[in-house]
Design a binder for these strands. Sequence first.
DNA 1: TATGAATGAGCTTTCATTCAT
DNA 2: GATGAATGAAAGCTCATTCAT
Lengths: 219, 219, 219, 219
Amino acid sequence: MPTKNTTFENIDPEKRQRIMTEATREFADHGFHQASVNRMVNRLGIAKGSLFKYFGNKQGLLEYVFGHAVSMLKAPLKQIRMETQGDELFTRIRRITLAGADFIEAHPHIYRIYLKMLFQENFPMREQFLKKIRATSAKFLHSIVREAMEAGQLRTDVDPDMAVYLLDTTVDRFLQSVAVPFLDGDLNLHGADRTTIETRLDSMLDLLRGGLSGTVSHD
Amino acid sequence: MPTKNTTFENIDPEKRQRIMTEATREFADHGFHQASVNRMVNRLGIAKGSLFKYFGNKQGLLEYVFGHAVSMLKAPLKQIRMETQGDELFTRIRRITLAGADFIEAHPHIYRIYLKMLFQENFPMREQFLKKIRATSAKFLHSIVREAMEAGQLRTDVDPDMAVYLLDTTVDRFLQSVAVPFLDGDLNLHGADRTTIETRLDSMLDLLRGGLSGTVSHD
Amino acid sequence: MPTKNTTFENIDPEKRQRIMTEATREFADHGFHQASVNRMVNRLGIAKGSLFKYFGNKQGLLEYVFGHAVSMLKAPLKQIRMETQGDELFTRIRRITLAGADFIEAHPHIYRIYLKMLFQENFPMREQFLKKIRATSAKFLHSIVREAMEAGQLRTDVDPDMAVYLLDTTVDRFLQSVAVPFLDGDLNLHGADRTTIETRLDSMLDLLRGGLSGTVSHD
Amino acid sequence: MPTKNTTFENIDPEKRQRIMTEATREFADHGFHQASVNRMVNRLGIAKGSLFKYFGNKQGLLEYVFGHAVSMLKAPLKQIRMETQGDELFTRIRRITLAGADFIEAHPHIYRIYLKMLFQENFPMREQFLKKIRATSAKFLHSIVREAMEAGQLRTDVDPDMAVYLLDTTVDRFLQSVAVPFLDGDLNLHGADRTTIETRLDSMLDLLRGGLSGTVSHD
DNA sequence: TATGAATGAGCTTTCATTCAT
DNA sequence: GATGAATGAAAGCTCATTCAT
C-alpha cells in the first residue's frame, strides 16, 4: 500500500497519473538499479527535485508504484472469488487465469515488474513484496482446492499441497507464456488474441483435469 | 559456443578457468548492466586491460560466458537422450528433470544467468540466445512426444504441441522451484535434498500422466 | 541586534521562540552552509515559505539569530561589570569567567555558533560579528586592567596590551576547555561540575597572579 | 599515516604533490562537508574519477591529507625535543612555540584544517585525529614539565597537570593568534613578522615564568 | 602481451529559493 | 500572512572503455 505521502497526494491528479504510468514503465523496462530517475523526469518534463520530494528516494518511488499495483489487483481478484463461489474447480481456475490475462493486457508493465522482481535477487524489498504476493495467491488456491475436495471434485489420494502447486504452476506459467516471448513453445500464446488464449487454456485444463480428478489407468 | 578468441585461448588454462568462473558468478549475481567489470578484475587480481583484450568489451565477455555454458549443457543432454532411448515417456521426462536439477546444483550460476536473461528484455543477445535454447529444448521434447505417441503411450486426441508445452512448462517450473525461493509453494522444493525432490517430482508426474495418458473420466 | 523585521515580530511569541531555538540549534550543530532550512522547517512543522518571508534568506535568519544571541549576552555582562566595581583584578576575572561558564551551560548553542564562526572563514558576516564581539571584550578587559594598574594591583613594567591579551587568552581558552572536548588536557574540565570548575579556575588564576602582579601568594 | 594506496603512490610525484597541495587547501578553506571535489578536480585539471580511484571517497582523501600532515609534523618536533634536551623549561617552550609558528607559516593550510576539525563536531575522523594529536602534545609537555620539576625550575606546590594545561593553553592560543585574525587583541600577532612574534612571545613567557616558577625576573 | 592510470558521462540525492494560491 | 509545490544547479560517486608504457 502507498506510503503516507502528502505532497504527492496533493498534486494535480492528472499529473499524478502521468508520473505513476511513467515510473511503472521505467521499472518494468529496466528493473530497479538500471531504471533512471533522470530518464523519468526528462520524459515527464518535471524537475528532478520534485520526484524526490514526493517519494524520498528511488526506492520510495518503487514502493509507491508497487503499492499502487497491488491495490489495483485486489478488487478484480476479490470479485472473481465471489462470483465463482460454488463453481466447479476448473471453472474457477479458468476464470482466474483469464482475469490474469486481462490484467496483464491492461497493465503489462505491472506484470513485468513482478517478473523482474522474481528473478533479480537484489531488487529492493523483494522478499517482503514476493512473500506478500505469493501468500495471497497460495491462500486463495488452497481455499478453492479445499472446497473442491469437499465437493468431491478431486481424487481423494491427491496431496492438497501438490494440487495447489500444480495449479499455481500451470496458471503462472500460462500467464508468463502470454506475456513473455520464448516461453510459449509452438502454441503462440505470446501476444495472442483472446479466442486463441481461451482455446489453448481449455485444452490445457482438460489435460490437467484428467490427472487431478479422473480415474487413473495405472491404479 | 565460444567466440573465436585467440588471445584468451592461449593463456594459462587455470587462469582461464578462474576468469570464466568469476565472470559467470558476476553475471549470475547482477545480470548484465549491473555486473561490474571493476569488481571482476579486482576479485581476479588481473589487469582491467587484459579482460578487454580478451573479449573486446563487456558484451563480448558475456557472449563467451554464454557459449561456454551452452557447451557444458550439450554433453549431458545428449547422453540422456541416448540412454533413455525406448523408455516410457514419463520415465524419460523424469530423467531429464533430475538431470536438470543436478546441473543446476553443479552450476547454479549458469542457470541464474538464464533466468535473468528470460525476464530482462535489455539483456544483450537475449533474442539469439533464448531462441537457440528454446529451440533445442522444443526439438528434444517434440521428438520424445512423437516417439511416445507412436508407442501408444499418449491419448490419441491430445494435440502434440499442447503436450510438449505442458511437459516443458512442468519441467521448467519445477526446476525454477528448486532454484528460486517463492516459487515452490508449500512443497519446499527450494534448496531441498535429492530424496525430497524425487518424491515431489514423482507425485507431480503421476498427476500429469493421468491427464496425458490415462482414461479420462468425462469422456 | 535584530534586523528590523515586522512580519516576524508580529507572529505568536511562542512560535517566535520555537523558531529561534530551532534555528540556533541548527546553526550550532552544522555551521552556516551545512545548516539545512529544510530540516528546520520540518522539525518546526511550519511552512518553508514562512521562514523566507520572515528573514529573506538563510543569511538573514543567521543574522537575526546572532543579534538575538548578542542581546542575551549584554545584560549579564553589564551587571557583572557593575557588581564587581572596585574589586581586585583577579576577583573580577574570576567572576567574569564563571559567568561565562554559566552562560555556556545555559545557552550552549550560542557559544558553539561563536566558535564555529571563529574558525570558519566563509561564515557570512563573520568579520562584522567578530569585530564587534572582540571589541566589546577587549574594551571591557582594558578598562579593568587600567583600573587595576591605577590601584597598584599590577607590576608597573607590564605592557597593558600584553596583560589584556594574556587575561583574554586564559579566560577564553578556559571556557573552550569547559565547552569543547580535547582542549582540557588532564584537568577534565569538559562537562565538569561547578565545583571542579571553580577549583581549577582558582589554581590557574593563582599562577597567573604570580606573573602579572609580582607576588606569589603561596610562598 | 597514509592509507595503503598503490594507484596514488604510483603516479608522477609532481602531480601527486599538486593534488596534495590542492586538496589541503580545499579542506583548509571549506572544512570537510563544504569542500568540493568538483572544485578540486577542476582546478587540478584532472578527471573526477581519478581522485576517487586514488582515495576511494572524499573521506579517504581527507584521511590521506591528514596522514600526510602528521608525517610532516613529526620530524621537526622530534628534532626540537632532542636539541633542547637539558635546556631550561621556558627556553624549550619558546623554541617549540617558534617552531610552531614557522610550521604554520610554511604550511598554513594544515593548521587551518586542524582548527576546523577542533570546532566542527561532524568532521569525519575527528575523535581519532584529535585524540592522537592531543595525546602527542600532552605527552611531550608532560615530559618537559617533569624534567623541569626535577631540575627545580618550577614551584614545588604547582600541580603538574595544571602546569601542562597552562603551558599548552598559552602556546596553543599564541599560535592561533598568529594564524587567525580577531584572536590577537592589540598585539597584532596575526600575520606579524618574525621579530614582532619573538618579542611578544618573550614578554608573555616572562609573565608566565613569574607565576610558575615563583621568581619574577624583572623585579 | 599485459598493465593500470586516465577519462567523463552518468548516476542518485540535496538544497536554498521562488511564487501562485 | 501563510502555504507548500516546483525548480535546477551542484554535490559525491561509479563505470566501461582507452591507450601509453
